[in-house]
Write a protein that binds this DNA or RNA. Structure first.
Lengths: 203, 203
DNA sequence: CCCCTAATGGGTCTTTAGTTCCGTTAAGAT
DNA sequence: ATCTTAACGGAACTAAAGACCCATTAGGGG
């Protein structure tokens, strides 16, 4: 007894528990691709994962908790920043990696679901914030290296440059619903670079 | 009879019908402020609006339909572009108007709800797309005037400049969950202007 | 002012989401 | 290998969402 205070799955995390978690998160992604966040039901996820729905309700707080956990899982798989030797190519690589993420069927649907969940759930919002915070910090290193090489002015805010590249792509994806293609991504990288070279990101 | 093919509320749109619609859309906004899109129930909206829930189910397709209709309503209230005489001030005004919209309690909650709904509903996505399409076209005129005045290079894509100003604000609001304040808005306008002056928005 | 019927609203029914109970299975410590 | 109990899963239960029926109300044309 006296195990109520702990979350289920923390005392015996190996074996079955790990398999259940993997199956549930996989099933969650499948459901998100099919129905989006608004159509995500714990019941359907449990059925698809082949686990009892009691287990899903016990381990996760709700639909938002599921996608938040999914986001946390994806955060660990985040790739390192590019280092091609020129800032132009590094920023282009950054834009294309964002493009690849949001146009991938499973990953794109998952990202949109987490963003939708985060509009009304603190847990999902925190997971998103952490994920992108890390990603921005990681790719910001590319800008720091460029400053050292003399390609960009001293004092350029690398984090802001990275944000400036991603922003138009997410804006189109989420807000204006315009298509996001390779040309859009490359233009976004180029524009951020032009602004950065002209000192718009200092301070 | 033979009225099934028409949507309810189209034959006698005046008086009661208009009052019901206004009450329902008002109630929808209230509920969105309190619970967000994921927590929006037709039942609660009907109760708050003081109308029968049958009426809400008859006139709107679902939660997504409600927010889509709300967005359509807001689209008509969209303001004209600024014309201060300088492109710097016009773009600053644009950024500040976006800031005002997303930081307003009711309007901000509504926008986030429509964006969340649009991730998995075509109707909401179309309403969003139309709303921002109009807004971008309207404010794009500021850039055209600036080109005529010789403040920006010939061939600058005004729509893209406007998108570039809004994008970082929505990116922070929706994706990274960072605070959006006046300084952020003004920086966004400045950076877009620097890039535009240096020809990054030509073509 | 009256009439016709579009539109609303209360009440009821069905479906689905979410909870609880308790027996069963399998981690992982000894 | 054995034992303890964390964790799972089936089933029954409660609550809420959504659909439907039909009586009542009020637009708006005559």
């Amino acid at each position: 007894m006296e195990q109520d205070s702990r979350l289920a799955g923390t005392v015996r995390p190996g074996g079955r528990t790990a398999r259940v978690r993997a199956a549930v998160l996989e099933a969650t992604q499948d459901e998100l691709v099919l129905h989006g966040f608004h159509g995500l039901s714990m019941d359907a996820v449990a059925a698809r994962a082949g686990v009892g729905k009691t287990t899903v309700y016990r381990r996760w707080t709700g639909a938002a908790g599921l996608v938040a956990d999914l986001m946390t899982e994806l955060a660990d798989q985040s790739a390192a920043h590019a280092n091609t030797g020129t800032i132009e190519e590094d920023l282009r690589a950054n834009a294309l990696s964002v493009l690849a993420a949001i146009t991938d069927e499973r990953l794109g649907a998952t990202l949109q679901a987490v963003i939708a969940a985060a509009t009304c759930d603190e847990e999902a919002a925190a997971a998103l914030s952490t994920f992108y915070g890390r990603r921005i910090a990681e790719w910001g290193k590319s800008i720091d290296l460029a400053i050292q090489r003399g390609e960009l002015p001293e004092g350029t805010d690398g984090h802001e440059v990275i944000r400036a590249i991603s922003a138009p792509l997410y804006y189109r994806l989420l807000v204006t619903k315009e298509p996001v293609d390779k040309a859009t991504a490359e233009r976004s990288a180029t524009r951020a670079l032009v602004a950065a070279r002209n000192g718009a990101f200092i301070g």
